[in-house]
Nucleic acid binder design. Structure first.
Lengths: 323, 323
DNA sequence: TTGAAAGCGCTAACAC
DNA sequence: GTGTTAGCGCTTTCAA
């Protein structure tokens, strides 16, 4: 910047004023500075600016993975909302590992992140202390609970599971099997299971891994081994539901004629399965939007972030019929 | 940091030494400093560090959208590779808009990004000048071309299209329709079309939008309106292919008995369509890995980035049969 | 409207 | 081993 000042024949203060555009500068000085900036190919240092302003304009986002539509779409919307306010999103993936999340959160904070977005409500020990040290706003997403430790912007996962169950029951289903992915290190799924607690016998619950092949295998064994065969499969995520659809087809069962299948998440792809999947819609885009808005407000006004429930609803398609 | 030094009864230099862990510090001083750090809840400023080291440890990634498996998976792997080397990824989405890409690239560079990752080979006017100003390494992904302006790490899209065509031809197909998404603002698709140039009559090419519903509509009109009906649908992306599968089913045509369908991309979901989609596999994870490695090398050693072709191959499943 | 100068919080060179 | 000191590149008083 000194070089620019010298070339323009002004002081560094004037260069700074021209660059920031805030203060009043004479037309002539402004032009001289701009010429010099162009001539020297000058680029102001972000770090130096940050050191003075005390702001990094960086928000850290921690998600389990980007290879899952639901997190990817969330980030897509989060980034859109944040960038509109001049904030940049640094993503870090945790692989559903709480310790890794803590690690990466430390990295992001050391990077200078002004706020953090995390997934779910369960944290590794030491996370609170970390936040306490850095004093940055944090918002937990995907799961809503009024009394959570962190401000939570997300869904009522228990309610979503019950929405699906109620729908099946109203359709006359009495023999329902619940299929889910892992509840360990995944409190979204954990809560969905919890929401069904006491409403269905323990032996109605089946759990498998996170992948489609695992979901297919589980559904295959459930429909073939259970006696009598359930009339409906309540899948706690669409990934599992999509696997179930495939397993039923492989087993020669027609959905929904022979068996009904319902999911939770309503992934974009679920509109195009065969048959189109009936699922509890979780508006993940809205969640990204709301999260971005909350963070922007917190950073700009210092206002505390309030928990917010993103309403889910049943998206009826063609995979459920009357028992 | 002065406060810490005072409380610990040492100089700021010693505090710095303890914090960085690099230099040799006496056990006693180290303990005193650590105690003071803890007591004061001290957090070193990332900006101040950056200003001294001249490094931000930030890499900017520009992608059209995160709501498409292919970019999400790419970023997933890119982030993993970069974070292993202590680099953070700032994502910016461009919505397939070159001007917006330029805008966001400017933002990222102003943020202090040390390197940039972009999608495709086409840039807005002014992009080169921007890079010239900032002098950061840039890598273009998704598309490989040896003589590209930017180092390119990606696939031979033309070759991928030909791979699909050759496969169909070898299976005896002579009446082939080519379905694609938009080629405007999407040079990956553009190149795939180009790869088929002269190999198929112009009237064999059909184009539609980026969404599944649009793909369904296009495929529906192609299979119903064309006389004679094509024996195979060569889809230049899996999104289009998945739409085609649905359209054929809707039209009462069995794939592959009545008509064959082939795609390009080999999205994870394509293994689970009905029937499972035969597609040209583009190893997007490997591309993310390679991109991360190239950037890490460039940043650590200053070595120039070399273009790299990520080999694609045919993933045979069940959507193509002999004509 | 402008410039001089004092920092912002840290690292690194140098001397002790 | 440790302290002193000079910056890193910018913003921001304070005078002029």
């Amino acid at each position: 910047m000194r070089d620019v000042a010298r070339l323009a024949g002004v002081s560094v203060a004037t260069v700074s004023r021209v660059l920031s555009g805030k203060a009043i500068v004479s037309k002539s000085a402004k032009i001289k500075v701009e010429t010099a900036v162009a001539a020297l190919n000058f680029v102001p240092s972000a770090a130096a600016r940050a050191i003075n302003s005390g702001r990094s304009h960086i928000v850290g986002a921690l998600v389990p993975t980007l290879s899952h539509e639901i997190f990817a779409r969330f980030l897509d919307e989060l980034e859109r909302g944040l960038s509109r306010a001049g904030l940049s999103v640094v993503v870090a993936t945790t692989g559903y590992d709480k310790e890794k999340e803590l690690h990466r959160a430390t990295d992001l904070l050391n990077l200078g992140a002004e706020a953090l977005v995390v997934s779910g409500l369960e944290r590794a020990a030491g996370f609170d202390a970390l936040i306490d040290r850095h004093q940055v706003p944090v918002v937990a997403t995907s799961r809503f609970r009024q009394d959570a430790d962190l401000p939570a912007i997300g869904y009522d996962n228990q309610g979503a599971a019950r929405l699906a169950l109620d729908y099946l029951r109203e359709a006359g289903h009495r023999n329902i099997a619940v299929l889910s992915g892992p509840t360990v290190d995944n409190d979204r799924t954990g809560e969905r299971v919890l929401g069904l607690h006491g409403l269905l016998p323990p032996r109605a619950f089946f759990q498998t891994g996170r992948s489609i092949p695992e979901a297919i295998a589980l559904a295959a064994s459930v429909v073939s081994a259970l006696e009598p065969t359930p009339t409906a499969l309540l899948c706690l995520s669409d990934v599992v539901a999509q696997g179930a659809l495939i397993a039923c087809k492989n087993a020669g069962m027609d959905v929904p004629t022979d068996i009904s299948v319902i999911g939770i998440d309503d992934l974009p792809s679920s509109a195009y399965t065969d048959p189109p999947l009936t699922s509890v819609h979780l508006p993940v885009g809205r969640m990204g939007d709301a999260t971005a808005a909350a963070i922007v407000a917190a950073l700009e006004t210092g206002a505390p972030i309030h928990s917010e429930e993103i309403a889910s609803y049943l998206q009826v398609r063609a995979s459920v019929t009357r028992a």
